[in-house]
Amino acid sequence: MSKLLSGTLLVAALFLPNLAYSTDCEDPRPLRFAQVPQKKADLLASQFQPLYQHLERVLGRRIEVIQAPSYSAVVEGLLLGNIDLADLGPAAYAMAKKRRANIVVFASFAGQQGVVFDTARGYHSVLVTRADKAFVTIDKLRGATVSLTDPASTSGALFPRREIARITGMPLERYFRRVSYAGSHDRAIEALQRGAVDAAFVSSTRIDEMIRSGQLRRDELRILWQSSLIPFDPFLYRGTLCKPLADKIRHAFLVDTEPLRPLFEALRRPGFNAVDDDTYRAIRDIYTEMNP
């Protein structure tokens, strides 16, 4: 037991040498970057590789990419200070803000017309079923099985839960026979494709992207419902980061974007937009309303 104890202490001593003490600004090296698992981790990593490299160059430090198992894990990481820079969903942002996280939202992807959805100024939560199944309306889905994404996902949990309650007058968990969390939008669509669930709530962005990449046929899915516009995912950093570092980050995202071309191409985005907390005011209100 004492051996285990000493080993653990040793390991603990190696990490975060100055976290708890410093009330001054932080200049973490490496910079820890986390993204909510909207997609499969390997896809995410490969798409964002230009950003990692760009940041490493611009910030002059190694970027440590943290693979979070859930949206909550990123939020908790931010709260704990384990994560410095993050790509959250709007709802996760609202969640973090509600828990008084010291974070500064500064950028989000600019919108562009999608292949199916109008995603110029935001995206939608979309309820889809397989086109070859008989679920043609939400009514038909009563008692069916449905897949969400992550409890903290905006389009894959927050909006569906809110809207289904509004449309059907009963909580999502009661309206559907069985509610499962796929973990990511990709997996939700996969579960739908395989017939593991009857319907899925996913982000319209992911549908567009999957259709573009050929993972999904356009006529494969039937869209039963789509939510009002949701602002794009926010990029944010902890408020305790030193200003020069924060400025460099903003610069890398918003000004010096040429090296990010491959990322924009891959995601069919024109670039990043500068955003602030106001952009997500509505979402935060909704979140608060849902989680008083």
């Binding site: 990490f15 975060l16 704990l80």
Partner: peptide, 17 residues
């Protein structure tokens, strides 16, 4: 204690808090 726990948590993705 706090520092040790935080650092242990940082490397453990199984636990949120």
């Amino acid at each position: 204690t706090a520092r040790k726990l935080a650092s242990m948590l940082a490397v453990d993705s199984a636990f949120l808090r």
